[in-house]
Amino acid sequence: MAKDADGFREFAAGRLDAWRRTAYLLCGDWHAADDMVSAALTGLYRHWDRVSRMEHPDAYVRTSMLRAMLNERRRPWRRERPVEFLPERVATGPGPDGVDQHLDVTALLAELPARRRAVLVLRFFCDLSVEETAAELGCSTGTVKSQTFRALEALRARLQGTGLVAEEA
């Protein structure tokens, strides 16, 4: 059975940028983000006949990217390794332009555990509700709330009162 390649192209073209941005916030690297999106696209294309009939095909792609990120973090070469000297910390103060803010927020997100980072990105960048976030991460709403709380608490402590505050849902 021939796939609806035109439908897939139209769907993906309209959302590719958003997926890349989400992936970048999840992994903190544009090349890795492209890899995540490519992996998600591959799955999406192979199951397009089924996914295209879903109510929220976007959720399928986001879930694919989240799994790719979480699986990638489990790779042996991604595990934490001891180093002789601590790396330099990224400046945490809010800068006058967007570049500084960009470095700031991605560095802060990178310091969070993967699932907490995913919770923050889904809730505050993708504007998903607690229930939707729980569904995409495959966990309970209570877990999402607690992860959100702990992630924001970590960010607040890291910023030490720089004004970076996200309203709790």
Binding site: R21, Y24, S38, Q101, D127, L155, A166, E167
Partner: peptide, 23 residues
């Protein structure tokens, strides 16, 4: 721009060209 959603959007406001070519 002092809240997390805005900072996130600012961080990805100008993405580099994508390596993904749909065709």
């Amino acid at each position: 721009m002092d809240d997390l959603p805005h900072r996130m959007r600012a961080a990805v406001d100008v993405p580099p060209p994508s390596r993904i070519d749909l065709d």
